[in-house]
């Protein structure tokens, strides 16, 4: 009954096609448009129309000390936060991998930071961090320790922000690693036992190599997100004090919505895009090594 024409044979591709095209357009268009704008000079404050300037926006932004600082800050924030999250998360996963009472309740509590809205988290942490009326300085003063400026001092702002990120995202790494641990087979452990390996030896030479691909996957996911962190920083400091917590995303936001310099803002974003891409490719290469 059905004639095997081209359409009939390919119905399963044709029907989702409109939706697929639409989604592609929605994802690809903004990226391409940003790339296009990054080659132009387009400042709304001048009232002049968009002008093609090739790489001029990139050259201008490269000469801006704030940009170079932001690149460094984006890296130190990401590395600091993700390394701490990976170590803590793996430790927590190892603990949770044993059987003990209250394990499920603990897992549930661990999930809570993950589902909290970052902006709300930022506001609550700002209350904790407030140097005059905040909870943390109160605790420090009760303990007789010197008080800190937390997010209000340029020397402590970045670690304070990392702490929030660590609080929120360590559970994610813990859960991923825990899933990885659950999937490990028992045989290598048995042979390790037979060979008389100690607990530490078993961990470093059996467990760790076997879950390394999982940990690296978790690190990629986290690092890609951390490189792009925007909400917590914007809600808590807006990049301040001064520019001392300005990461690339915050800088791009300021260039677009406070300075209305859309050309240079786009060049910052394109730079960030390639940074994230290169980073992911790099970690993926390392991951391949462990899979062998």
């Amino acid at each position: 009954m059905i004639k095997s024409g081209f359409f009939e044979r390919n119905l399963k591709y044709l029907f989702p096609l409109p939706a697929l095209l639409f989604v592609l357009l929605l994802m690809v268009f903004p990226v391409l448009y940003t790339l296009f704008v990054s080659f132009t000079e387009w400042t709304l404050t001048s009232g002049r129309p968009m002008k093609f300037v090739a790489l001029d926006s990139y050259l201008k932004i490269m000469r801006e000390p704030r940009f170079l600082d932001a690149v460094g800050r984006t890296f130190s924030f990401t590395v600091g936060a993700v390394v701490a999250e990976a170590v803590l998360g793996t430790t927590i996963a190892l603990v949770l991998n044993r059987e003990f009472k209250g394990k499920n309740a603990l897992k549930f509590i661990l999930l809570l930071p993950l589902v909290a809205t970052p902006v709300a988290v930022g506001i609550v942490f700002n209350l904790f961090y407030d140097p005059t009326i905040g909870f943390l300085n109160y605790v420090l003063s009760v303990l007789g320790l010197p008080q800190s400026g937390w997010v209000t001092a340029s020397s402590t702002v970045l670690p304070s922000l990392m702490l929030v990120d660590i609080w929120q995202w360590t559970p994610m790494i813990a859960l991923i690693v825990l899933a990885g641990l659950a999937g490990l087979s028992n045989e290598p452990y048995e042979s390790a036992k037979v060979d008389g390996a100690s607990g530490a030896q078993t961990f470093f030479h059996v467990t760790l190599p076997m879950i390394m691909p999982t940990i690296l996957t978790a690190i990629i996911l986290r690092a890609v997100d951390a490189l792009k962190t925007y909400d917590i920083i914007y809600a808590m400091t807006g990049g301040g004090p001064g520019y001392s917590s300005e990461t690339l995303n915050i800088l791009a936001y300021k260039y677009s919505f406070e300075y209305f310099n859309l050309g240079q803002a786009s060049s910052i974003l394109v730079f960030l895009f390639f940074l994230v891409l290169l980073f992911s490719l790099g970690v993926m290469k390392i991951r391949k090594k462990f899979e062998l």
């Binding site: 400026g149 209000t152 001092a153 400091t237 301040g240």
Partner: peptide
């Protein structure tokens, strides 16, 4: 107040 270099009105008011 401590941290005044990062305070706007919304931080000063509660103080």
């Amino acid at each position: 107040p401590q941290g005044v270099a990062s305070m706007s009105w919304e931080n000063l008011m509660p103080v």
